[in-house]
């Protein structure tokens, strides 16, 4: 099975975020990017399917941040056969424009895996747009796949641990919530090897032709703990206060 996987660099959720001067976006000058957490699972599921079917994996990413290249080298080090950086200097684009770029750059694949969602996009629908443009079926919130002859059996998660299985005909596009096993790690030395491997290529994209029809007019970072009592002091002070709170709630013999 020949699999394409779309990887997106998103602002590191653990870093302190700051807004730009007109408060319409993050201040991106000093922002660190990481691979969108669900895309790490999409890549893992792609690599597992490659192993199941003696197939191949091509990772695609869009954008110019250094982290994007690093992300693609990591994908190669983990087992992707090829990586493609789509476009250069494209800046922030909305979902429709991004999907246009991908569709122009994607090779022929039996299956395209994406993360279930990206944390930094309000009209979150790149994966679905790609599937619509290619005319492939799309299923989201997928937590496992198993290959058949020319179909794929997939597990979709509902809620409270309830799952449903579907047979999906190929080619298809899936939004992966979690791979069937935890994403693999890779040694830094392998990533360095990947940088030398020549498996990363760049492709120019045609300019996008559509737009999402929504505009972000203002962003803000909600005030820390608005409505919460924030405990001051070191861990000893915090422990004392929390013990008091537990006692007040009448739990744990913490009286």
């Amino acid at each position: 099975m020949d699999i394409g996987v779309l990887l997106r660099a998103v602002p590191d959720p653990v870093e302190e975020l700051e807004l730009n001067d007109d408060e319409t976006d993050l201040d991106r000058d000093y922002l660190g990017y990481v691979l969108n957490e669900f895309d790490e699972h999409a890549l893992e599921e792609a690599l597992l399917l490659k192993e199941d079917t003696d197939g191949s994996v091509t990772a695609y990413a869009l954008g110019t941040a250094d982290e994007v290249e690093q992300m693609l080298f990591t994908a190669i080090a983990k087992g992707a056969d090829k990586a493609v950086k789509v476009g250069d200097g494209l800046g922030a684009l909305d979902a429709h424009a991004q999907a246009d770029l991908f569709v122009g750059a994607l090779g022929e694949h039996d299956l395209i895996l994406c993360g279930v969602q990206a944390s930094d996009e309000i009209d979150g629908q790149v994966a679905m747009l790609v599937s619509a443009k290619l005319g492939h079926p799309h299923v989201s919130v997928v937590v496992g796949t198993s290959p058949g002859a020319d179909t794929l059996t997939i597990t979709k998660e509902y809620w409270a641990g309830i799952t449903a299985s579907y047979e999906v005909s190929l080619p298809a596009v899936l939004g992966i919530q979690a791979a069937r096993q935890a994403p693999r790690y890779v040694a830094v030395s392998r990533i360095r090897q990947a940088q030398e491997s020549g498996a990363l290529t760049e492709t120019d994209a045609d300019p996008p032709s559509s737009s999402s029809g929504i505009t972000i007019t203002a962003v803000r970072i909600p005030e820390t703990g608005a409505g919460a009592e924030m405990i001051d002091g070191d861990e000893e002070a915090a422990a004392d206060r929390i013990i008091e709170l537990l006692a007040a709630a009448g739990v744990g013999g913490a009286a």
Binding site: A228, M230, D234, E235, A239, I242, L245
Partner: peptide
């Protein structure tokens, strides 16, 4: 300090859970 969990919490402490855990367990 920007973690959105503090938006839903009634009480919050900004700090390292590994510093706090032993303190709490000791007191109990």
């Amino acid at each position: 300090p920007q973690a959105p969990i503090f938006g839903v919490a009634h009480y919050g402490w900004v700090g390292d859970l590994f510093d706090l855990l032993p303190e709490l367990t000791d007191r109990l």
